[in-house]
Design a protein around this nucleic acid. Sequence first.
DNA 1: TTGTATGCGTTATCAC
DNA 2: GTGATAACGCATACAA
Lengths: 343, 343
Amino acid sequence: MANKEITIKDVAKLAECSPTTVSRVINNSDHPVSKETAEKVEAAIKKLNFSPNRIAQGLKSDRSNIIGVIVHDICDSYFAQMVKGIEEFISGHEYIVNIYNTSRSVEKELHAFNLLKANRADAIILAGGALMDKKYEQKMHSMINQLQNQNTLVLGITPHPFDIKNIILGNDRALEVITDKVIEYGHRKIAYIDGPEKLYTSYLRKKGFKKSLEKNDIAVDDNLIFKGDFSFNGGRKAALEIIKKINSITAVVAANDSTALGAMWELNHQAIKVPDQISVVGIDNLPEAKYSYPPLTTIEIPIYQLGTNIGEYLLNRLNENCNYQFKDIKIKLIMRNSLKRLK
Amino acid sequence: MANKEITIKDVAKLAECSPTTVSRVINNSDHPVSKETAEKVEAAIKKLNFSPNRIAQGLKSDRSNIIGVIVHDICDSYFAQMVKGIEEFISGHEYIVNIYNTSRSVEKELHAFNLLKANRADAIILAGGALMDKKYEQKMHSMINQLQNQNTLVLGITPHPFDIKNIILGNDRALEVITDKVIEYGHRKIAYIDGPEKLYTSYLRKKGFKKSLEKNDIAVDDNLIFKGDFSFNGGRKAALEIIKKINSITAVVAANDSTALGAMWELNHQAIKVPDQISVVGIDNLPEAKYSYPPLTTIEIPIYQLGTNIGEYLLNRLNENCNYQFKDIKIKLIMRNSLKRLK
DNA sequence: TTGTATGCGTTATCAC
DNA sequence: GTGATAACGCATACAA
C-alpha cells in the first residue's frame, strides 16, 4: 500500500548522476555542477515532484526548523494577533510554527517545553507573561539550561525570570501613561481591575497604575482594586463589585481591553452610563475596542507588528546574525469616548 | 560553544549497556530487559536529562508527528476556537500542531502545502472552506495525490472538491434552519449578507438561505443579497447598503456572526433600531454574539468541540484504527433578542 | 566536474 | 537478556 517515498536517489537515477550531485543542485551549493547535469536534475525533480525530506535534512544539519510558540489562549485576540504576525514572517521562511495553549497552567507549559525539547526546536517563544510559581520557576531554570545546551533559542515576551532574551513591552509604562491621562481628566477616585494572580504581567501593569497615582499624590486605596483575569467575563464580574461602590468611583482603569470591554458591557447592562456616570479605560487596543459602547479609550500595543518583529529577530539570530537588534514597538494613547473630562 | 547533543549513546555509556538496550527501555519494547539494567538506564536518563531526538525517530519510523492546520485567519474567533480544540487533543498526544494563515490566498495555501509536504506531515487539516479557483483546484489535485503517496492524511472541514475525507458541517442546513425561523416569525422581506466570493462555504450558506425562501414560497430577490466577506467590517459596509433599502426589508440574515455583529453595530450607529426596525440573525454563535446589542440570535456550531473531535479522529486514523468514525457535531438554534416577531 | 564513503540519532534485525 | 550492525534520507569531506 504505502508507496515508497521519493528520495534523492530516485532523482539521481532518473537524472543519471549521483545523489551527491542532486544534493548540490537542491542546495545551490558552491560546489560546481555543470549546467547540463543541473538541468537534468531539475527536470527529474519536477517529473517526480520531489521535495527533499526536511526531517532528514534536519537530522543532518542539527536543525529542526521548528519554532515553538507558547500562548495562554489562542482565542484571546491579543495572542491570536501575535501568532499571526509571527507566522506571517516565519513560515514565509520555511519554518514550522508550532503552537501550544497553556491556559496559564504550569503543567501544560512544562509539557509544551518537554515536547519542544524532544523535537529539538530551533527556538521557543514564551508569548505570554511569566507565571509566578516557585516550583515552576525551579523546573524552568533547569529546562532553560538544557535547552541552551542543545542550542535552542528561547525568547520571552515581557520579562521572565530566566536567563533568556526578554522583550520588554513596557507594560508598566503603558498603565502609567493611561492612568496619568485619567487623572489629567480630573479623576481622583479611580478603581483598578487587576489581571490574573500569579502572572507577572499583572504585577507590572498594576505597578504602573500605582506609580501614576503616587506621582499625582493620590493615595492607593486597596478597596478600589478589584479582581480580574484579563477576560471579558472577569471584567463583568468586577463591574458588579464596582457598582456597589459607585459613589466613591469616577473612573475605572482595567488591566486590559477584554476586561474593560466586559466591565463596560455589564455597566451598560446595569443601566450605569459610561462615561457619564463612570469612565472606563483599557490597555491593548484590541480590534473590537473600536466598536464597543462607547468606543474604548486605551493604549495601543501593536501586537501584530510585535509578532512580525519577533519573527524577523528570530530569523536573523537563527542565521547567526548575532548583531541584529530587536525592533522595539511603540505604544500609543488612543483617545475615544469612554473617558470623560470632569469639571 | 555548541554543547553536543545528549544521545542514546551517552545514556548507554553511563548505564553501562548498549544503545539498543536504552532504546528498548525508552520504547517499553516487548523485548525483555532485566529489571536491573532498566533501572540503571532510567537513572542515567534522569541524570542526563535525556529525551530521545524525535527528528531522528521520525526519520526511522517515517513519521514526522506533524499535523498541519491551514486556516484562513487565526484572528477570526471561528478558527481560533477550532485550532484550540485541535491543539488541546493533539499536543496531549505528542503531536506537533503546525499552523498556517492563508488569508484565503491561493498562493499562500499552496505554499503551506509545499512546506507540509516537505516536512512529511502525518496529516493536514484544511480548516477553512474550499477556495473556488480553477488553477488552485488543478494544482491541488496533483498535490493531494503526492501527499497520499507519501501517506499524509488530508482532512477537509466542510466539503472540498478533492479525494480526501471531508467533514460535513451542514452549513447549508444551518442557514435553512435559521431562515425558516425568521420566516416563522413573520418576516417575508429578508435580506442576505453573503460570504466571501470564491469560497465554497459562502455558496453553501447562501444555498441554504435560498432553499428556505423557496420552500416558503418567497421569491429570491437578488437586489436583497448584499456583498460581505465574513468580517465585522464587511457587515458594516453591507449595513450601509441595506439602510438604503430599509423600507423593503424587515430582517437580515448574515452569512456568519462576525458579519451580523458588524451589521448590527452599523445599524445602531446609524440610529436604526434592532430588532424594532429590523431584525438581524447570524451563524456560528461566536463567544461575542452573546454580548452584542442586542444579543444575537444565531445558530450554534460548536467549533471548539469540532476541534477536539478532529483531533480524536486524526489520532485514531494515524494509529491505524481505520474503523474509527468521526463524531459529528450538532448545530443548535440560539434564540436571543435580535430577531423580532412580526404581527 | 563528478562520485564514494561516512555519519547525523534512532530502531529493527539478527546473532549470541 | 544483551548487543553489533544496518538502514532511514540527506549532506559533507574527501577522492578522483
